[in-house]
Computed example of a mutant assay.
Amino acid sequence: MITILHNNRCGKSRAALQLLESKGIDFETRLYLENPLSEVEIEDLLEKLELSADDLIRKNEELWKEKFSSVSYSQQGLISILANYPKLLQRPIVIIGNKAIIARDLERLEQFLS
């Protein structure tokens, strides 16, 4: 099963969703702002992405700049921040089995789907 972690307000997320729909792919949509990921789910996602928590944070968000940017955090600390502030999660993320990508680039998403 394919899952997309989706934010309706994000143009890149809407484009990725539209690409999946246009290909007739069966997928599940998780509106992660309404249904945030737990710390365990974020840890699992990081393994699938082969990234660190630092790579998963949207550092240009005002929330990050105002609340978190002036301090260094451990991996677990960043995971906790992402679980409590899902707005900081990079998007969209497409998950297939034990692999995942941050799917901002539609060409990269197409390659991931093939």
Rank of each mutant, 00 (worst) to 15 (best):
V40T: 14
D44E: 15
A103V: 03
L45C: 09
L17R: 07
V40N: 13
V94C: 04
I81P: 08
D105N: 15
N8H: 11
A100D: 08
K12C: 05
P92L: 09
I102W: 06
A15I: 06
S38F: 01
S22E: 15
S72G: 07
I57E: 05
E21R: 14
Q76F: 00
L89C: 09
F68H: 09
D44C: 10
Q90F: 03
R91S: 05
A16H: 03
N84Y: 07
S74A: 11
G11D: 11
K12P: 01
H6I: 06
D44I: 13
R14W: 05
N98L: 06
T29F: 02
L19D: 02
L113Y: 02
E28Q: 15
Q75Y: 07
L19N: 03
S114I: 10
A100I: 12
K59I: 09
L106A: 10
P86K: 10
I96F: 00
G24W: 07
E110K: 15
L78A: 03
L63G: 05
P36Y: 05
S72M: 09
M1Y: 02
P86T: 10
E34T: 07
A83H: 08
S52D: 14
G77L: 12
C10W: 09
K67P: 06
R91L: 07
I95R: 11
D54C: 04
R58V: 01
R104L: 01
W64P: 08
N98T: 14
L46M: 02
L17W: 04
S69N: 13
R58N: 04
I95W: 08
S114Q: 14
S38V: 12
L46K: 05
E21Y: 02
I102Y: 06
L20Q: 06
L37E: 10
L20W: 03
L19I: 06
Q90V: 09
F112E: 08
R108L: 06
F68E: 09
Q75I: 02
L45R: 04
A15M: 01
S80E: 04
L5D: 04
Y85D: 13
